[in-house]
């Protein structure tokens, strides 16, 4: 599974989005979904760590990371390389 597919899969699960809900690299996350709150961010980070058996450091958590599906997918891709 590539990083974008994994990202959309995790987002659909965490936000309980239906398969018909469109998600592309440009889809905004922060401000884009009312459910995208601190708890969702925490859950997403946990899921990424579990799935890729990696650790995410505090300094890696920035608002830029959660701007769009694409910025999150790029981050996941960098973690997949090291997994």
């Amino acid at each position: 599974m590539n990083a974008l597919d994994l990202t959309t899969k995790l987002l659909r699960a965490c936000l309980q989005l239906s398969p018909s809900e469109p998600l592309s690299r440009e889809t905004a996350l922060l401000g884009g979904f009312p459910e995208f709150n601190s708890l969702t961010i925490t859950t997403l980070i946990l899921e990424i760590e579990e799935r890729l058996d990696c650790e995410i450091a505090d300094h890696e958590l920035t608002s830029e990371l959660f701007e769009t599906v694409g910025t999150l997918a790029d981050f996941i891709d960098s973690k997949m390389v090291h997994a």
Binding site: L39, T42, S63
Partner: peptide, 16 residues
């Protein structure tokens, strides 16, 4: 991290 995430979401200075 939920506290960190709240600060990130509000674009405030983060604590580790």
């Amino acid at each position: 991290r939920q506290r960190t995430a709240t600060l990130v979401k509000n674009q405030e200075k983060s604590e580790t």
